[in-house]
């Protein structure tokens, strides 16, 4: 059973008198453990796709099956619960809460778990996720005290802390320099390989898309190409640095 199954998905926005057909019939299946890079220029519909895949928005038409369940017509709160349990987000701008420690940032999704987790367990799981990202000694630092790469690793820890089946990364390297970008991609590849987590990456950079196992190109609201890819390895990068050296 595919993790994600889109069936003739359409999304129409009404902007005043104009209607914008952001998605014009997208169908695709993503299996567990795939690392799918969705590329396309701005206005191609990739952001809309990302919002629907992330259960932040609902399609106008068609169906979206997440882990076999149709989530196309769920209520706001039902979608919130799906996001909480099954999806981890990694944003371009990190979106860490300022003046809040890394551990507390990672705890945010756990705050909305149902049933409610006790504070001690929230803290333990946050620290565990930070440890997996190699940030144990930064757990009680505020984002302003962390480098860009560290901040993005905190954001990845936050995405992983509730053990989702799907990681949605929206331009995760947009604010990072090349070396740090490569480091983040390596982390995502590792998650896929070691934990079999399905990853959907939205990017407009072909270099970054090249780290996926499958590249889907979107334009004008439809899929124009969908090809398997031999993922680019970090070791292929001449300028790649070992993890410890990446700030």
């Amino acid at each position: 059973m595919p993790v994600i199954s889109l069936q003739n998905l359409k999304k129409v926005y009404k902007l005043g008198d104009n209607t914008v057909n952001a998605l014009r019939g997208v169908s695709l299946d993503i299996e567990e453990g795939e690392f799918v890079a969705i590329t396309g220029p701005s206005g191609s519909g990739k952001s809309t796709m990302m919002h629907i895949l992330g259960c932040l928005d609902r399609p106008t038409e068609g169906h979206y099956l997440l882990n076999g369940n149709d989530v196309s017509n769920l209520s706001r709160d039902e979608l919130a619960d799906i996001r909480n349990r099954q999806i981890g987000f990694v944003f371009q701008g990190f979106n860490l809460l300022p003046r809040t420690t890394a551990a507390e940032n990672v705890e945010v999704p756990l705050l909305y778990s149902r049933p409610v987790l006790p504070a001690s367990e929230r803290r333990a799981r946050a620290l565990e996720a930070l440890r997996a990202m190699g940030l144990t000694d930064r757990a009680f630092h505020h984002p302003s005290q962390l480098s860009g790469g560290q901040q993005q690793r905190v954001a990845i820890a936050r995405a992983l802390v509730n053990r989702p089946t799907l990681i949605l990364a929206d331009e995760p390297t947009g604010n990072l320099d090349t070396a740090t970008s490569i480091e983040v991609m390596r982390l995502l590849q590792e998650l896929r390989e070691k934990q079999k987590i399905t990853i959907v990456l939205i990017t407009h950079e072909p270099d970054i898309a090249a780290y996926g196992t499958r590249i889907i190109a979107v334009r004008d609201g439809i899929i124009i190409s969908d090809k398997p890819n031999v993922p680019r390895r970090v070791s292929d990068e001449p300028e790649a640095l070992p993890l410890a050296a990446v700030g």
Binding site: G54, R76, A80, R83, R85, V108, L111, Y112, S113
Partner: peptide, 16 residues
């Protein structure tokens, strides 16, 4: 607003 958006993405319901 961004914080609210983030909390919602992380699974906060309207009531939360």
């Amino acid at each position: 607003t961004r914080e609210i958006g983030l909390r919602m993405a992380a699974g906060a319901r309207s009531g939360d």
